[in-house]
């Protein structure tokens, strides 16, 4: 095989149309406070699990809203459900239930 002088790069853009938005819709029904998130990052900054590992609920939520399920799947099971973020979230997002709902959906349990 001749080696060509170039290679094809993977597209680095977030292509909105390629997102999988079915999950976010299902989760939103189960936990409507999902849409209140303003990505302030308070949940992630005080997070008990984030002391030890790369876990950010803020990032999970935004990836979920962008339809990027794979990214959500890679991160979500690190949460300890300790509930600290419920206390600090300035928008009153029911974070703990949100994590549980996402985890449940991704693992194939019936949500509701």
């Amino acid at each position: 095989m001749p080696r060509w002088g170039y290679k094809i790069h993977e597209d680095r853009q977030v292509i909105w149309e390629e997102g999988d938005f079915s999950l976010v819709e299902r989760i939103r029904l189960a936990e409507p406070s999902l849409c209140l998130c303003i990505s302030c990052g308070t949940c992630a900054s005080g997070c008990t699990a984030a002391q030890f590992t790369d876990f950010s609920l803020r990032r999970v939520i935004i990836q979920l809203q962008r339809g990027r399920i794979e990214e959500v799947r890679q991160e979500i099971d690190r949460c300890m459900l300790c509930g600290k973020c419920i206390l600090t979230c300035p928008r009153g997002v029911n974070t703990r239930h949100l994590v549980l709902c996402i985890r449940k959906e991704l693992s194939g349990d019936v949500l509701y």
């Binding site: 949460c79 300890m80 549980l100 449940k104 349990d109």
Partner: peptide, 14 residues
């Protein structure tokens, strides 16, 4: 029962 499939993993604990 409702969360039968749900497992969280913490291999990262110190």
């Amino acid at each position: 029962l409702l969360n039968k499939q749900v497992v969280f993993n913490y291999p990262y604990l110190p």
